[in-house]
Design a protein around this nucleic acid. Structure first.
Length: 584
RNA sequence: GCACCUAUGGUGAAAUGGAUAUCACAACGGUCUUCGGAACCGUUGUUCCAGGUUCGAGUCCUGGUAGGUGCACCA
């Protein structure tokens, strides 16, 4: 993994069973006089091969001069002499794997743990004491909040929760573009369209729509019409210098609408920022810093601009101060990084953007490294994929964007259509529509490993068949409903002496903490998604084939399993930023 | 042109160097409504090409091919 500086685990993953097995293997090998080996213990892909498996005999066979299966037999025989009661049997299989099968004792006590820990089940201490700052959803005021921002926000919020679950102290921030040419374009557009200016009483959505359209119009005209381009540049300069009352009026108004609109979306998505930092706040410092380090040789002058020559490091040259003496985004990003660490002395700073900025951030981090290597070493750029549409690349300049708001509202409508005949108060139905729609969108983004593009197909995104957020919600609601119907109180349950055959689902319940730890370490919530889908699918199978209530002496244990599934689903969905509805 | 990223059933994805490559959609067939059917069960079908490393490669290395993104005063 890249850039682990600042994020080395403070506490090793406590995986009791894995450690137990490792020790058993090591002890047995020592008794047999075998050399030390670098072996792994993993979950076999197929449960028929046991709950854990080791490749030690494959690793050692050559060194010892025995064939792998022969060696595996010797080791496994030694292991079998001292098995704890949490392991039921050990077998040699395949090319020489030694497979471990866990016992009912283990499953029963793990089930007890899941019920006792409740909302805390799955928490780890790997990042205890670490301070992490996540920066994401870097929007621009006066420009639309599009679906790319939605992706960044969903990933950022989920990662924040995953890190917190691993014990870290997380600060969520967003860095917003409130200066730059887009401001001039939008204000020019607004001035052209005074007749369709929204009224004070209009909704924030319609106000933002007006500004977005004005921006698209200004942007088109900027490219097509040189005279307009000049006007826009003048307006932009006035907006930057804040010396024209009319321009200030439009700017303040539209900026307020934008920020209010973003806030509405964050609320709907269930996310919240701890701090809002703006580009305009660092412009002045940016010039000073770049000039200072230009004198020290980090940057150099070229064609009247101040540039960073990345070629020596296999990168490309970028302009930090343009030939008019104004700081570019590059310079402001450097100043922003410095003030961020000053305000928040963290172990790790993660910036999430779309991957089209990957090469850009390599240059920024390289330059930052020459200014302050400590800060650069603790900063990591994490990119999410691009959202690809059948209509081609979206562009807010051309106005053919899918806004975050429209995606959410269209998905809500699709859900409303499905539940319209339910006999529930409209208020409840609206709440369900919102929670299910947000789940559907979040799931479709978080299900994939981050970095890859997401092919966005409206039909698929709002489909609730199969692998989906609503499927997970449904399973949790169903489990809760059974528990409620049974009037079951898990606090009174005790399974310590329960010793029937294990259900297939029990082989997966106890793995949740490992999955969370991996999602945290690899910064990939999709591991949680895959796990929850498998769990939900196993539970639905369990449900279809086993009576839970009124199942005689089995009922108590089955209700325990059902409650455990609910606990894990709701903890897992929380980490994805998805709510479990009360009804759906 | 240079750099970075990607390539897995018809489609969209998953897979710590491990065993028979997993899941969903679509297609076809079944459960027939029960403790919530937004469910369950079954069938068909997959690692871009050529070398290499390894006991073992979708995964690592080299070279191709195809696609995406980025490369001086925008953010």
């Amino acid at each position: 993994m890249t850039h682990l500086e600042g994020l080395e685990p403070s506490v090793q993953q406590e995986n009791k069973m894995q450690n137990t097995i490792k020790k058993i293997i090591q002890d047995s090998c020592q008794v047999l006089g075998l050399p030390e080996a670098d072996f792994v213990i993993e979950h076999p892909e197929n449960v028929d091969f046991g709950d854990f498996s080791t490749n030690i005999s494959l690793v050692l066979s050559k060194q010892v001069g025995k064939n792998p299966r022969e060696l595996a037999n010797i080791i496994s025989e030694e292991i079998s002499k001292n098995l704890p009661n949490t392991i039921s049997k050990v077998e040699v299989a395949g090319p020489g794997f030694i497979n471990f099968y866990l016992s009912k004792d283990f499953f029963a006590s793990e089930l007890q743990q899941i019920l006792e820990k409740g909302k805390g089940y799955g928490e780890g201490r790997e990042l205890e004491g670490k301070k992490i700052i996540l920066e994401y959803t870097n929007t621009n005021v006066l420009k639309p909040f599009h679906i790319g921002h939605l992706m960044g926000n969903i990933l950022g919020e989920s990662l924040s929760r995953v890190f917190e679950f691993s014990g870290a102290d997380v600060t969520r921030i967003t860095y917003q573009g409130d200066v730059g040419l887009h401001i001039g374009k939008a204000i020019w557009g607004m001035m052209q369209r005074k007749d369709s200016f929204p009224a004070d009483t209009d909704s924030v959505s319609s106000k933002v729509k007006f500004v977005g359209d004005a921006y698209a119009f200004g942007s088109d005209q900027y490219e097509d019409n040189p005279e307009v381009a000049e006007e826009i540049k003048i307006i932009n300069k006035k907006a930057y210098e804040k010396n024209d009352p009319e321009v200030n009026h439009y700017y303040d108004l539209a900026r307020g609408w934008s920020l209010e609109h973003f806030e509405e979306i964050y609320k709907k998505l269930g996310t919240k920022f701890d701090d809002y930092l703006f580009e305009s706040e660092v412009a002045a410092d940016a010039i000073k810093i770049i000039n200072e380090f230009c004198e020290r040789g980090v940057f150099e002058k070229s064609d009247g601009a101040v540039v960073y020559k990345g070629e020596e490091k296999g990168l490309h040259t970028r302009v930090f101060i343009n030939s008019q003496g104004l700081p570019t985004y590059e310079a402001k990003d450097i100043a922003h990084a410095l003030r961020k660490f000053k305000k928040y002395p963290v172990d790790k700073s993660i910036i999430i953007t779309a991957n089209e900025q990957s090469d850009y951030f390599k240059v920024i981090l390289s330059a930052l490294g020459e200014i302050d290597s400590n800060i650069a070493g603790r900063t990591e750029h994490l990119s999410h994929g691009m959202l690809r549409l059948t209509e081609g690349k979206m562009s807010s300049r051309k106005g053919n964007v899918i806004t975050g708001e429209s995606l959410i509202s269209e998905t809500e409508e699709a859900v409303s259509e499905i539940i319209k005949d339910r006999e529930l108060p409209q208020e409840i139905k609206n709440k369900i529509a919102e929670e299910v729609a947000v789940a559907a969108i979040k799931f479709s983004i978080l299900r994939q490993s981050p970095g890859g593009d997401i092919i966005f197909d409206r039909e698929k995104a709002i489909s609730f068949e199969g692998d989906s957020g609503p499927y997970l919600q449904y399973t949790a609601v169903r489990a809760a409903s059974v528990i409620e119907k049974a009037g079951w109180k898990n606090k009174e349950a005790s399974f310590e002496t329960y010793n029937k055959d294990a259900y297939p689902i029990e082989h997966f319940l106890y793995r949740f903490p490992e999955v969370v730890a991996r999602a945290s370490y690899e910064k990939s919530p999709h591991y949680i998604v895959s796990y929850l889908i498998e769990l939900a699918s196993l539970f639905n199978g369990f449900y279809a084939h086993n009576k839970i209530i009124d199942a005689g002496e089995e009922s108590e244990y089955r209700l325990g399993v059902t409650q455990a599934v609910f606990n894990i689903l709701s903890n897992g969905l929380y980490l994805l930023g998805i709510k479990v509805p009360e009804r759906m």
